[in-house]
């Protein structure tokens, strides 16, 4: 047992409150240093310390609401929000999170939710970590010969031929409304099943697929994350009863403190080195997940109480 155990009412387990606070702060620190949401690290880490996976996912979503409000305020004060784009993404996001929570409940009943969460995370983190490692190494090598190539803001592809075109003033774009809706939908599903905000998928997609100006991206993606994680929290609470507010609030307090320290540290470190470091952390978590999935478990049997 830990220094100061706290009984988490929904999770039904007793965990060390200091340990949880430190976990929240560590993930907050990472999100402050690297400018990522950190949900993709928080959920697997909670599972490692013994929180039931379903509760870890839903409570991470709850924690994410607070963490993104905290981050969004700074961006909104500077007007870095494309409201129309955000609203359309949100429309898709609500539908996606609804489908995601329904899928989640179905998988939980059938006893496959843990394996789906673990497999999705292993795939996601391996891909993400490898891409980041590749990109940061290349950037680090390229640093000495800065042959600045002129790049177009975005490539024109079949995506720009889709119907229902709208003018997005803040982003200076004229694209189909279907694009942000579909992007929001995909991120919503991801958010419901994995308890992540999806910033790491959404931000690159907004820059490279939609062609949004970089300045408007964080404010708009945080806008989407706040409301989608709020919708996931409420839907999970109603459909699966898996939101532990005590857990979420302890993590949130730790996360906010960590994020502020992280932001200061981040300013002092160099970009490529930071990304290299994050890539290694992400790959380490992925390796642990893959190890747990592929090595013969000590106990092949598990039990679950059926709700009447």
């Amino acid at each position: 047992m830990g220094i100061l155990d706290i009984y988490l009412p929904i999770a039904g387990v007793s965990l060390d409150i200091v340990g949880l606070f430190i976990l929240g702060a560590a993930v907050g620190l990472l999100s402050g240093v690297f400018g990522v949401g950190g949900g993709f690290l928080l959920t697997p880490l909670l599972i490692f310390v013994g929180v039931p996976p379903a509760v870890a996912v839903a409570s991470s979503a709850n924690q994410l609401v607070g963490a993104s409000v905290s981050g969004a305020m700074a961006h909104w004060r500077r007007g870095n929000l494309d409201f129309l784009m955000g609203a359309l993404m949100l429309l898709g996001g609500f539908a996606g999170s609804g489908l995601g929570v329904w899928l989640f409940a179905l998988l939980q009943r059938e006893g496959h939710i843990e394996i789906v969460i673990s497999l999705s995370y292993a795939a996601l983190l391996t891909t993400l970590g490898a891409l980041m490692l590749l990109e940061s190494t290349r950037a680090w090598l390229r640093r000495r010969k800065p042959a600045a190539s002129h790049r177009k803001l975005h490539q024109h592809s079949w995506l720009h031929g889709l119907p229902f075109k709208l003018r997005f003033r803040r982003s200076k774009l004229y694209i189909s409304a279907l694009l942000p809706i579909l992007l929001g939908f995909a991120v919503g599903v991801l958010s419901a099943i994995l308890g992540v905000g999806g910033g790491f998928v959404m931000v690159p997609a907004m820059i490279y697929l939609l062609g949004m100006p970089t300045a408007a991206v964080p404010g708009t993606s945080l806008f989407q994350i706040i409301f989608v994680s709020a919708s996931v929290t409420i839907l999970q609470a109603v459909a699966n009863n898996t939101v532990d507010v005590v857990l979420a609030l302890v993590l949130l307090v730790g996360g906010v403190v960590g994020a502020q320290i992280g932001t200061r540290w981040g300013a002092r470190l160099r970009g490529e080195e930071l990304r290299l470091l994050l890539a290694l952390i992400v790959l380490a978590v992925a390796a642990k997940l893959v190890f747990d999935l592929t090595v013969r478990p000590d106990n092949l049997f598990s039990i679950a109480v059926e709700e009447p």
Binding site: Q63, A67, L249
Partner: peptide, 18 residues
């Protein structure tokens, strides 16, 4: 109601901390 309260609590805490 619990879901809404959880969201409101987290949002308030996030806003205060900013």
């Amino acid at each position: 109601l619990y879901g809404f309260a959880a969201v409101a609590g987290a949002a308030l805490l996030g806003w205060l901390s900013s």
